[in-house]
Amino acid sequence: MKTTTFGLDLAKRVFQIHWVDMETGEIGKRQLKRDQVRPFFANRAPAVVAMEACGSAHYWARQLTGLGHDVRLIAAHFVRPFVKRNKTDAADAQAIWEAVQRPEMRFVAIKSEAQQGVLTLHRVREQLMKMRRMQVNQMHGLLYEFGAGVPAGPHGMTHAARALTELADTLPAMVIETLREQLQRIEALTHDIAAIERRLAAWQREDEAAKRLMAIPGVGLLSASAAIATIGDASTFRSGREFAAFLGLVPRQSGTGGRVKLLGISKRGDVYLRTLLIHGARSVLTHQKQFSEHLQHLLARRPFNVAVVALANKIARTIWALLAHGRTYEHGYVAHAA
Rank of each mutant, 00 (worst) to 15 (best):
M51F: 14
M51Q: 10
C54F: 05
C54S: 10
S56V: 13
S56C: 09
S56Y: 05
S56W: 01
H58Q: 07
W60H: 09
W60A: 09
A61P: 08
A61I: 13
R62M: 04
Q63A: 12
G68Y: 10
L73E: 02
L73W: 11
L73F: 12
A76H: 01
A76Q: 00
H77M: 07
F78K: 00
F82L: 11
F82M: 13
K84L: 05
K84S: 01
N86Q: 13
T88M: 13
A90M: 10
A91Q: 12
A93Y: 10
A95Y: 03
A95C: 05
I96F: 04
W97Y: 15
W97T: 04
A99G: 04
Q101C: 01
R102Y: 00
P103S: 10
M105A: 07
M105E: 04
R106V: 13
V108F: 06
V108Q: 02
K111E: 04
K111A: 06
A114R: 15
Q115I: 12
Q115L: 07
T120N: 08
L121K: 05
R123P: 02
R123E: 09
E126M: 14
Q127C: 09
Q127E: 11
Q127L: 14
K130N: 15
R133Y: 02
R133K: 14
R133V: 11
M134K: 12
Q138Y: 02
G141Y: 11
L142H: 05
L142I: 15
L142S: 01
L143D: 04
L143K: 05
E145Q: 15
F146W: 14
G147P: 14
A148R: 10
G149H: 12
V150H: 10
A152H: 08
G153C: 08
G156Y: 06
T158L: 12
H159E: 15
A160H: 12
A161V: 08
A163C: 10
L164D: 02
L164M: 04
L167I: 11
A168T: 04
D169Q: 08
D169R: 03
T170Q: 07
